[in-house]
Design a protein around this nucleic acid. Structure first.
Lengths: 119, 119
DNA sequence: GCATCGTTTCTATAATTGTTGAATAGTTGT
DNA sequence: ACAACTATTCAACAATTATAGAAACGATGC
């Protein structure tokens, strides 16, 4: 992943509306949600939601598919995982020992970083 | 993690300067880097870097410690991992089957999400 | 104490982002 | 073709964010 793509994604998650919408879609899984239902769930003006969904779509974090007169949105989980990989890659320059203490301090601990191994 | 804290973090990673600085610090590990070295590495004006490091510090993604006349910055790895946990929690409402295909599509695959288990 | 070094803060300006309501466009059912 | 429904686009305005250079601040060494 390039820096530009990553900043675009982070920017897309940097507003409350957009983060809440994305998390809602992550929770919803492959089923996704149509725009109107998202607007209802978040209690946001349709035009405002459209603005934010467009930002998420442009960043690639959500996909949209027409479904009759509805627009169905879905979270792009693979991209989310790629972003996580981008953020954590080269952690401590791949030096095993340096990371362990830092990992232990997280509430989610080891599950979220690739297994410790020499570079 | 609350939404507000998460958006603050995403916002702090949404500029190229800040993302590059943070990744540099992640790579550097516990050793961290002093402000001047970061500025040199990124080729950015000191006052501009200070502005961006302040944003990262305010979001909690980096810590700063005085070291003689230098300021040493370090990435907050545990918070990074907490952020990842926040982003991935409740994925597909904890419904095992729905996630597998999505996970497989990522270049980093299964390592990055908590093990699949019923809610 | 004074000059120097590393860094931050201040000031002004430029650029970007978010909000709202009205208008527009596409889809469906009659 | 028409009216109803879903959603996006547009336009104007308000608010926020980024930049660069100058000034200020704290720490160090002579």
């Amino acid at each position: 992943m390039e820096t530009k793509a990553a900043t675009s994604i982070f920017e897309s998650l940097s507003s409350s509306w957009r983060l809440e919408a994305f998390r809602l879609l992550v929770k919803q899984g492959p089923e996704g949600m149509v725009a109107g239902d998202i607007a209802s769930a978040l209690d946001i003006a349709p035009s405002s939601l459209s603005f934010h969904l467009k930002a998420l779509t442009h960043a690639g974090m959500v996909t949209v598919e027409q479904e009759g007169r509805f627009q169905r949105y879905r979270a792009n989980i693979p991209l989310m995982l790629d972003l996580i990989a981008y953020l954590t890659e080269e952690c401590c320059s791949g030096n095993p020992g340096k990371c362990v203490d830092l990992r232990a301090a997280s509430s989610c601990a080891d599950a979220l970083l690739p297994p410790i191994s020499p570079k």
